[in-house]
Design a protein around this nucleic acid. Structure first.
Length: 936
RNA sequence: GGGCGCAUAACUCAGCGGUAGAGUGCGUCCUUCACACGGACGAAGUCGCAGGUUCAAUCCCUGCUGCGCCCACCA
């Protein structure tokens, strides 16, 4: 065997195995290997075709990969369905930007050429993210990968649209909608993000009253607005019917200062809050949602004053052609010139922005396609209420229910070119709209005319995404895959798309498949920086997962995160966002995929924010190194073993019985953690087992056996070591796929083992052996060793300085266990020969000091090394602790109510604890006499 | 305006009606033949504040304070 290097180098290991797995077909579902097995399915949330790997992907995909690898190892026919989303607006924006560099717009190319251009872009640079997901080890069935614009996906979209239309759930209507002036399309309510606490102003100006009665009151009406430019679309001014200030104006008309129009004064108790502003509200039905509703109540004209690009149209009169915000300035200027300005106040307001382009959303009246949601929402609510879909963590159920019970109809059309074109055809003769499954409608379904023009709009990207769980399996065709893999078991995703995606998939699954699309929804939090701030390009605190995996200097990283800022400034910002990098020098070492994955798993998925700490990733890199070195150590002893694949029969040695028992607990903990979507618990169970129990205790204990033990003892220990190591590597594999494969391949294994650890079975409790007796016996042993080490350390005795130790216990079994394992104690506590074991006694070796470690008294002879003053201090401190604890316990037990009401086990536990504390106190105080002796 | 969540060791976070935990960091010691990306030992917390329920509260309830998020058409 070639010599293994001293330290683990992930970069040398990781790239090799992914290809191996692909060649073996490890990730494929529905193979002969899995025939007749139960299925386990996770549909992967398809990343955007424009996307590149970020921490959110790394987090979600790691979680999903752990789940899928675990179930695959458990023998399920595991399908992780991958794919890519065509991401309508994002993609169109990206390609339009490229065109702009060539000095062109999409209109220069025309629709068909533009779409061809997007496809070309997609083939070249889209889908880079699939490659990146492979770097982090995702074991998805890539051969089944789907793109939401694939022909079969398009067919599914058309089928869904047509059926929903036939059933009256999709309709066309003219409404006030959210308009994105930059990408020039309508947006759904969900795609509008509201920026809060924006500093704006409340601007006041006066409308002159026509035919005012000068004796009744002022001849003008002052209104307050945050958007003065919209006054060009005012078709009324509303006051509260009960407002005494304006009673004289009821029924009057106002003169518009810029256009030839009279604006009526109306009374409306819904719209107007007397206490706000001037108590008079200008009403612009075509550009404000409240005003729109008011207009409907009063039959007001809806006057659109904007073009689709956000400039003023002809209704703007002298302001026509001006961009919205320029128009605002101009209007204010003119109002001032006309002497109509009445002041302005600072005002905190909210601003609606487009999720994709960040431009301020303009409410516009427009004819669009809508989906009626209330009838779809009801069954989706029911499915969660009756448990057919379980949402984990449960706290999100309320959010889900709130949205679905207050759901609004969904605007599904978009004025884009990239996407699924709406399968509706407008008749040029009779204006009837024909909706069809065919690529093109041949004749109007009403008048039979062949003069048909397809609706130019495309569907919201989420319209296709919502069909994902069944469209990827062949729907609407009734394929064997659809029958076998629908519904999925788990949907794992971020909580930010509960509404966009999760709820809609549940509605569509129930509607088209008659069954929920998945049994559980597992929701993870958002990855944020170390201080808890959202990762964003603006803040310069984004972390590229690949930089953590492959290593990167901070300079290259901040240049990516904040390309426009000076490096020094960006670096300062970055280090502020990640305080743990302060002592890291120039950058990240190559932590490796496994370290990153294990780190992500170590955070509780139910936390809303996951504050990623590079220092923590470093900790798990060290864990990888630990795993590597422990295996390297073990191999020197076990390389010629012929393991059976089962735990050794009847192990006699305590350390072997104990380790097998702990192994059972660890794999049970891991499986429970994964099943409960508490990967942190699962990962922690194995981490603790490996590092503390296997390495720090077991491996150290094997050393005296491998050097001086009997052949039988050595054989048994070798068998236990090789078995436990092989099992724990399997248990760790879903979390850390690469290093476990690398090391597992080096281990001797039972005959007939699979070609990859990824195909080996996931361990169960039966791979170890629960042994309560061994666990308590080991407790005495470790207590004795730690007790002796504590004394040594406190008195500054070097490890190389061997000292006599005597161990005492009143319990014959304890004494027996200590004697049986005395070579081990000698080795681990560096004692002068095997420790003597005795019953408690008032006699003590001269110059010895006593430490009480649970059931064992440890007497270490330190004459000549010991500092009596220090020892005295130590005893005082310990006694003080014990005395305090005793007081607490005594008080508790003196309470009659406690004695009467506490459960018996709690009571007896408390009594036992008090007894043991009292004994400890007695033993500690006996130590005071030793100090005297030492001083002599 | 509604709703949700968080506040535990210097940091990042678990936990839980009955002795406060981990990792990192910190201090001391150790290059003992897997690993210094290591080992041993240790110090460190009125579990945000104020009430209440209970025999017993870090945990349950109420209020407050400070953060964070989501939803909502107050000009």
């Amino acid at each position: 065997m070639e010599e293994l290097s001293k330290a683990y180098e992930p970069a040398d290991v990781e790239p090799r195995w992914y290809k191996y797995w692909l060649d073996l077909g490890v990730f494929k579902a529905g193979t002969e290997r899995s025939a007749g097995k139960p299925t386990y399915v996770i549909p992967m949330p398809p990343p955007n075709v424009t996307g590149s790997l970020h921490m959110g992907h790394a987090l979600g995909c790691t979680f999903q990969d752990v789940l899928i690898r675990h179930k695959r190892m458990q023998g399920y026919d595991a399908l992780w369905q991958p794919g890519i989303d065509h991401a309508g607006i994002s993609t169109q924006v990206v390609v339009e930007r490229l065109l702009k560099r060539e000095g062109k717009t999409r209109h220069d190319l025309g629709r068909d050429a533009f779409i061809a251009r997007v496809w070309q872009w997609k083939e070249q640079s889209g889908g880079r993210i699939s490659q990146q997901l492979q770097i982090i080890g995702c074991s998805a069935d890539w051969e089944r990968s789907r793109f939401t614009m694939d022909p079969d996906m398009s067919a599914a979209v058309r089928e869904a649209f047509v059926r929903l239309h036939e059933d009256g759930l999709i309709y066309r209507a003219t409404r006030l909608v959210n308009w994105d002036v930059e990408s020039q399309t309508v947006l759904s309510d969900l795609e509008v993000e509201i920026e809060e606490n924006v500093q704006g102003e409340l601007y006041e100006f006066a409308y002159a009253v026509i035919d005012a009665d000068p004796t009744a009151g002022a001849a003008e009406l002052v209104v307050a607005t945050t958007r003065p430019e919209t006054m060009l679309g005012d078709t009324a001014v509303a006051v509260h019917p009960d407002d005494p200030r304006y009673t004289h104006l009821h029924g009057k008309k106002l003169k518009h200062p810029f256009v030839d129009r009279e604006v009526p004064v109306i009374t409306d108790a819904v719209l107007v809050d007397m206490a706000f502003g001037t108590g008079a509200v200008k009403v612009t039905p075509a550009h404000d949602f409240n005003d729109f509703a008011t207009g409907k109540r009063h039959g007001l004209e809806e006057l659109n004053i904007f073009n689709f690009d956000g400039t003023m149209n002809a209704q703007g009169g002298e302001f026509a052609g001006l961009e919205r915000f320029k128009a605002r300035k101009a209007v204010k200027k003119r109002l001032a010139e006309l002497g109509l300005e009445r002041g302005a106040k600072a005002h905190k307001m909210t601003l609606p922005r487009s999720q994709r382009t960040n431009s301020i959303v303009e409410p516009m009246i427009s004819t669009q396609w809508f989906m009626k949601m209330a009838p779809l929402a009801e069954p989706a609510l029911q499915a969660v209420r009756d448990g057919r879909v379980k949402i984990v963590p449960e706290e999100w159920v309320k959010t889900y229910e709130y949205w679905l019970t207050n759901i609004q109809d969904w605007c599904i059309s978009r004025q884009l070119w990239w996407g699924h074109q709406i399968p509706a055809f407008h008749c040029q003769d009779c204006a009837h709209v024909t909706v069809t499954r065919e690529d093109t409608a041949k004749a109007c379904s009403k008048c039979g005319s062949s003069k048909l023009v397809q609706d130019p709009d495309v569907l919201d990207t989420w319209f296709s995404s919502q069909l994902w769980p069944f469209a990827t399996l062949g729907w609407p065709a009734q394929t064997p895959d659809l029958a076998r893999y629908y519904p999925a078991a788990d949907m794992e995703t971020g909580y930010d798309i509960i509404f966009f995606w999760v709820a809609r998939m549940i509605m569509m699954g129930l509607y088209f498949m008659g069954d929920v699309p998945f049994k559980r929804v597992l929701l993870h939090g958002m990855v944020v920086d170390e201080t808890g701030d959202k990762m964003s390009k603006v803040k310069g605190n984004t972390l590229d997962p690949l930089d953590l995996i492959h290593g990167a200097s901070f300079e290259t990283m901040v240049q990516k995160a904040l390309p426009d800022a000076p490096v020094a400034e960006a670096l300062t910002k970055f280090k502020k966002s990640y305080p743990s990098t302060a002592q890291m020098g120039k950058g990240f070492p190559a932590y490796g995929t496994d370290a990153l994955r294990m780190t992500l798993c170590s955070y509780s998925p139910q936390a809303k924010r996951i504050a990623l700490s590079p220092a923590r990733v470093d900790g798990y890199r060290k864990f990888c190194n630990k795993v590597y070195n422990a295996t390297r150590f073990a191999l020197t002893y076990i390389k010629d073993e012929k393991p059976s694949g089962k735990p050794p029969e009847n192990p006699k040695l305590l350390l072997n019985r104990w380790l097998l028992s702990r192994l059972s607990a660890a794999v049970t903990g891991s499986t429970a953690g994964i099943d409960d979507y508490r990967l942190d618990d699962g990962a922690k169970a194995l981490y603790g087992f490996f590092w503390d129990e296997l390495c720090n205790w077991f491996v150290e204990m094997t050393k005296p056996i491998f050097t001086d033990g009997s052949p039988e003892a050595q054989a048994e220990t070798r068998a236990t070591l090789v078995h436990c190591l092989e099992v724990v590597l399997r248990a760790l594999h879903p979390y850390m796929p690469f290093i476990t494969e690398e090391l597992w391949q080096l281990l001797p294994k039972a005959v007939g083992h699979p070609a990859s650890i990824a195909l080996a079975s996931y361990p169960t409790a039966a791979d170890g052996r629960t042994d309560a007796e061994a666990e308590s016996q080991m407790g005495w042993l470790t207590a004795a060793i730690s007790g002796a080490r504590t004394v040594r350390s406190e008195h500054g005795i070097k490890f190389s300085q061997r000292v006599p130790v005597e161990l005492r216990s009143a319990d014959a079994v304890v004494r027996q266990v200590l004697s049986d394992n005395s070579p081990m104690i000698q080795f681990l506590a560096s004692t002068d020969g095997p420790p003597t074991v005795a019953e408690p006694s008032t006699q003590r070796p001269r110059g010895s000091t006593l430490n009480v470690a649970g059931d064992v008294e440890v007497l270490v002879t330190l004459k000549g090394h010991i500092d009596p003053a220090k020892e005295s201090e130590r005893i005082d401190r310990e006694v003080n602790h014990v005395v305090k604890d005793i007081e607490v316990m005594q008080k508790k037990l003196a309470n009659q109510n406690f004695v009467a009401n506490a459960p018996t086990d709690v009571l007896s536990e408390a009594r036992a604890r008090l007894d043991s504390l009292k004994q400890q106190k007695t033993r500690l105080e006996a130590g005071r006499e030793l100090v005297k002796e030492l001083s002599e």
